[in-house]
């Protein structure tokens, strides 16, 4: 019935400034695209019909990976394939390249950008199907009714909305303490990755801090975690072109057999990438080994609240955490 794109005005700005002006001018009627992978879905389903589409994919300033000494800067429209193949990132942050390599399919990674991957909307099938849920401005969460199908949905922080983050690179960037550079009307602000993603309690209609008029221009990863041990795994229904049921991203520094520092984040379990701080805490300063693995498995999903059909995510989180720990030995 839908499956057919509406018509809109397409803008191809020549600079970030021009893009910001257009974004500001059109406000809620505007829509920024780069790879368009998430956007075109929305347009084709006709649930989103922006009047002006501003394509920033051609902005050279927003493209490429640079070594800036204390950090590596990734332009927001750098494609996932470029990230996956980038030598600098492979050397410094293999966690990110591993996560990027797991996104969707090769064709989508060729066009899809890192900025788009972190800014994409949730995949909740009710929300995507145009139901007037809380997230869409209505007054029900269709995915959390007694008859709802919510196998893919949240274990945590499900306040009026049980949607989860679909991003594979999100948990990796949270683990790596990345910073997101956002431009608005010529003004630049910096937001830590962990704060970039927001839950329904903050704003139920958005997945990130980005508001209309904002443009994510760059992602900076501090060298702090350069060369650290890493672990990434994504569990999905199929091995390509799929979203995570649960994913895990970890970076850890080991000194003398002990974990000196570690950050772990999970995707697919709440609206934002979830830091597993209890796992981090039990690991820090301890010897890597079977005991740590056992404890990580036990506490990883602490506080999880399962819906009707997603109980399986709880043991899955525990087992993935245990596996991440095991990878350090």
């Amino acid at each position: 019935m839908t499956d057919y794109m509406h018509s809109f005005d397409l803008f191809e700005p020549a600079s970030v400034e021009e893009a910001a002006q257009l974004a500001d001018k059109y406000g809620k009627d505007g829509w920024i695209i780069a790879g368009g992978k998430d956007s075109f879905d929305w347009f084709k389903d006709r649930h989103k019909r922006p009047q002006a589409v501003i394509n920033i994919a051609g902005l050279k300033q927003l493209h490429g990976v640079k070594d800036n000494g204390d950090h590596v800067a990734i332009g927001a429209v750098t494609t996932l394939t470029e990230i996956e193949d980038n030598k600098l990132l492979q050397k410094n942050f293999p966690l990110l390249t591993a996560a990027a390599a797991k996104v969707a399919s090769p064709q989508i990674r060729n066009a899809g950008t890192i900025g788009g991957n972190v800014s994409q909307d949730t995949r909740c099938s009710y929300y995507r199907d145009g139901f007037p849920c809380y997230r869409a401005g209505g007054n029900t969460c269709y995915a959390n009714t007694p008859t709802a199908m919510n196998r893919e949905h949240a274990l945590y922080d499900a306040i009026r909305c049980v949607a989860v983050t679909p991003s594979d690179t999100g948990p990796a960037l949270v683990a790596l303490e990345a910073e997101m550079i956002i431009s608005r009307k010529g003004k630049i602000r910096t937001v830590p990755a962990e704060k970039f993603f927001i839950g329904p309690a903050v704003d139920i209609t958005r997945m990130t801090v980005l508001e209309k008029g904002d443009i994510l221009t760059e992602i900076r990863i501090p060298k702090k975690w350069s060369g650290a041990k890493h672990y990434f795994e994504k569990i999905a229904d199929r091995q390509t072109w799929d979203f995570a049921l649960v994913s895990i991203a970890m970076v850890a520094k080991i000194t003398g057999g002990k974990v000196s520092d570690v950050r772990v984040a999970c995707g697919g379990v709440q609206c934002t990438p979830r830091r597993l701080t209890t796992v981090e805490d039990l690991m820090k300063g301890e010897n890597v080994g079977a005991e740590m693995e056992r404890l990580a498995k036990r506490v990883a999903a602490q506080g999880a609240k399962a819906l009707n059909y997603n109980h399986f995510k709880i043991p899955l989180m525990g087992n993935l955490a245990a596996r991440a720990v095991r990878s350090l030995t």
């Binding site: 995949r123 099938s125 091995q239 390509t240 072109w241």
Partner: peptide
Amino acid sequence: LVHKMPSLLEYKSPGFHD
């Protein structure tokens, strides 16, 4: 009663890797 998601993406069918 609505289809869970009438799309090629969400109707999961194996890919090359599978």
